[in-house]
Design a protein around this nucleic acid. Structure first.
Lengths: 247, 247
DNA sequence: CGCATTTTTGATCAAGTTCAATATCAGTGG
DNA sequence: CCACTGATATTGAACTTGATCAAAAATGCG
């Protein structure tokens, strides 16, 4: 069952039992991916859409000389690429950062949902729009923010995304990323990530230990990172489409 | 008539007369925007979609302390935000960089097209997918490339995008961007943009004068910038959906 | 022509990179 | 339980890319 995904969509609008069932039915196959294995690679023909049921993954791209950029991070409940099967080949790769459980959603199933269920279609569009908004915000992050702001901004974003699917525990969450991975995501060197993490710790803005991040004062971190959550559109913006309780 | 837009979509799949007509009909209002005027601003309620008929525009976002990032560039034929009306408010602004003529497409019209015309719907999805792919590539650009590579990469991208809608003239095109705007788009200072442009000129990779950019040797610029056009998906990837000539 | 915008140049400075070494940690097998 | 291994994190020192500040030159346009 795509538990986290449904939770994610319900940040936009409340789904009915039928809606959820439609999503369940769309899943045609489940897979388990080992840590560091590619889920799909640049050049592959994308014939279905991947939904992360559990674990973390990321999009990345290598330049010809080996430099790597992590383009986006996927956490449980994230849909990798709605409608990507319209394209002939992948222009980037997706790799598992931890062991990943995923669901494959076939093109046919997705198109059927689009035809049959207006509310789910809207929720999927919302999901797409937010994904793109996050990508835009990463552009701002890389273009304008300092190292400290970039890290803080990412930590704020991940906090809200994970809280949206119930994966935070009070002020903290599991963060299974290495410093090299953070560096590749933020366009910085791993050495500088290390030093900047120490700055954040020294300032009391984060506690990071044993793969768990704690944000003692979210407001403070938000201010230090110039973080504005508006791009996540998580305040039930589609509540006027809510299913009534009865269905 | 949304001339450039149709040309753009036909990079994916050939449209029939009916398809074109459906797009024409979707346009409900035309507007002219003065240079430097906002087309839509952060916080606005987005009730329709904007299509750039003529002129250049960009998305941007200001940080609280005034830093500005240009998030994407729009050229003639670009659709600003498919389905954006599902969101409650804009998380960024769009401003005209030159005088802009645009068409407003209402939500109702767009939904009608989606219901009535499968080929156009596919083409619009392709357009959305490419827009997102460009955004991802900008992430890579800002995260990994040097100043010279960033500029070269942008010039290559713009060349292919403009050629796709017929706005190149041999190896050159009109580039109405100031150095400050290039700086804001590439996350660099205007001073450094100036010096890097000189480097590119000195290397014979570009000629830039009077608002016109010429790329004497595209391959060379492409190599110098580590540019790979695969993310633009412009080789008629949807040709199996082509309308036959008869309709 | 005159004014505002844009481009160019010079000099100094800072953020972040690179390279290389060391320390720590998690897991594995004995 | 401990030693071993590979991955990850940390530190130091030298270096480089690009930023900042400030002024001058060029350009465009009414």
């Amino acid at each position: 069952m795509p538990h986290y995904f449904i939770r994610k969509l319900e940040q936009f609008t409340k789904l009915s039992c039928d809606d959820r069932q439609a999503l369940e039915n769309a899943v045609c196959k489940r897979r388990t991916i080992a840590k560091h294995a590619d889920i799909i690679s640049e050049g592959d023909d994308p014939h279905h859409v991947n939904l992360i049921l559990d674990g973390w993954a990321c999009r990345y791209k290598h330049l010809d000389d080996g430099r790597r950029q992590i383009i986006s991070l996927f956490v449980p409940g994230d849909l990798c690429d709605s409608h990507v099967y319209l394209l002939r080949e992948m222009d980037h790769s997706i790799v598992a950062l931890t062991p990943v459980r995923l669901a494959e959603i076939s093109r046919a199933a997705l198109e059927q949902v689009a035809n049959d269920n207006v509310r789910v279609t809207k929720a999927l569009w919302w999901n797409t729009l937010v994904t793109v908004a996050v990508q835009r915000e990463w552009t701002v992050n890389l273009g304008q923010r300092t190292a400290l702001e970039r890290l803080g901004h990412l930590f704020c974003e991940l906090f809200l995304r994970l809280r949206g699917v119930g994966l935070t525990d009070g002020p903290s969450y599991e963060l299974p990323l290495t410093q090299v991975e953070l560096a590749d995501a933020l366009g910085l060197s791993n050495v500088h990530i290390n030093r900047t993490l120490q700055d954040l710790r020294r300032a009391g803005l984060i506690v990071l230990k044993g793969g768990r991040l704690t944000i003692p004062d979210f407001d403070a971190l938000q201010r230090a990172s110039l973080f504005n959550p508006n791009y996540l559109h998580i305040d039930r913006e589609g509540r006027h489409f809510d299913a009534d309780g009865s269905v």
